[in-house]
Structures are given as C-alpha cells and as structure tokens.
C-alpha cells in the first residue's frame, strides 16, 4: 500500500493550533486512512443497535494485521475532549460516537508488552462486568501483567504497568443508517514495532506481507469470544 497518497490530518487541538503542524514534535496525531465500514461476517454493515455491550468486537484496521476493539459502552458516558499523552506526544481524545456517544474503538495491543488478541488466545479483553484485576466494571484488562485501561476515558491507564493509553481508532457514525466506519488511527510507529516484534507469527497467519495489506472498504467485526479460542477472564 502506498501510504504517501493518504493525507495526514490532525484532530488534536494542539496540532490544529499550530500553523507548522507538519513538523509537530510534541503532539500526537491521528493518521487518516481510507474509511472502512464495520461489518458482520456476511459483509453486511453492523447496525449500532445490534452491537453487544457484553464484550468487545475485534476488527482489523487500517491494515490486516492490526487488531482493534470496537466497544459499546451502553449507558456509560464517555468523557469527551480529554488530554492524553502517548509516546508520540500529547493529544486530545474526542470521546465516543453514536446516539449516546457509546461506541469507542482502540488498537487492541497492550502498550506494556504488546499482548493482543490472537486466534488461539486473547490475554487482552474488555471486561464489561469487571474482573479480579479490573478494579471496576467496563474496563479493558491485560492478563499478562495486570494493565487496566478505561475505554470511557480514552483507554487511559487506570492500574498497572502500561506506560500509555491504548492507541485510539477514529470512528464515524452515520445516524441515518446506524452504521459505523473507521477512518483514522494513532500510533503507526507503535504498530510498526508491533509488526517487527511479531513478524514471524504474522507471516504464519497472514502470509508474507499479508498483515501489511490495507483492509479495504469493509472490515469484519467478530465478538472476541468467537475471535479467540480462549479468553482468560483475568
């Protein structure tokens, strides 16, 4: 995929405030990718009203090898426009989308030591009703070393050793059709490191270079209980 043909946009307010945004060193930006409609296995667009609140759905975006969580927070409100920081700099997370702002998405790779959902097992999950490690309901928990993130708060770290929030994925909600698309992501440098770290596994699963292919206009969302054979309830 030719990445250069995609326009780099900035949604972070700090970045927007700067005339010289192309060289921003202190702000982390969303990077725009072609929008991908979130669908079910049959390829039909997922209707927002049918997205469960009990677990995360897993989809690939913007590249086949990048796992993301789509989470329906239900009645739990998100905190919009909060200030967060990752390894690339400061950014603002705009909150969820949807009728109640209940839909959020993040790259499902633990920022501590890169645990992520795989077909065999996922050590990272959205614990809707809480868990031993979560310290409260509605959090994302990593079994490996107990990192806990709050998806209503931009996936900010609430407990454990993770050094930064999960990387955000930008969603677009169409109220007319009740459908969702993804059209941006933050943290491509981190994802590049993820690809290097798991290169052999990713080649085994997607074929040489397959994990680096763009997902295209549609990306399938699969409940994590079906996506991974085993999801430990840490």
């Amino acid at each position: 995929m030719d990445r250069r043909r995609f326009v780099k946009v900035c949604t972070g307010s700090a970045a927007l405030a700067s005339a010289n945004w192309g060289r921003m060193a202190v702000a982390s930006d969303f990077e725009a990718f072609p929008a991908a409609k979130l669908t079910d296995r049959s390829g039909a667009p997922f209707k927002g009203t049918t997205i469960p609140t009990s677990e995360a759905l897993v989809f690939s975006y913007p590249l086949a090898g990048v796992p993301c969580f789509l989470i329906n927070l239900g009645d739990r409100p998100t905190k919009p426009n909060i200030a967060l920081k990752n390894e690339e700099g400061d950014y603002r997370w705009q909150g969820g989308v949807g009728p109640k702002g209940q839909f959020v998405a993040f790259v499902a790779i633990c920022t501590h030591q890169m645990s992520y959902p795989q077909p065999k097992v996922s050590y990272l999950r959205y614990a809707a009703s809480g868990s031993e490690l979560a310290g409260g309901p509605g959090r994302i928990v990593c079994c490996a070393h107990g990192s806990v993130y709050d998806p209503a708060d931009g996936a900010k770290v609430v407990i454990g050793p993770a050094p930064m929030p999960l990387m955000p994925v930008r969603l677009v909600y169409d109220p007319g059709t009740d459908e969702l698309s993804a059209d941006g992501i933050m943290g491509m440098a981190y994802i590049k490191r993820f690809f290097t770290t798991y290169k052999a596994d990713l080649i085994a699963r997607f074929g040489p270079g397959g994990y680096r292919q763009a997902v295209g206009e549609k990306t399938v969302c699969i409940p994590i209980s079906q996506y991974s054979g085993l999801v430990p309830t840490c």
Binding site: H112, Q113, M114, S115, V121, Y123, E132, C143, A144, H145, T197, L230, P232, T233, C234
Partner: peptide
Amino acid sequence: AAKGEATLEWARGIYR
C-alpha cells in the same frame, strides 16, 4: 485457569 494462562503470557511479555 485465567491466571494459569496469564502465567505464560507474563513470561512472553518479558522476553519481548
């Protein structure tokens, strides 16, 4: 069992 599984990933994380 959850902590049993986590035991393996704990180590893999440190190797990584």
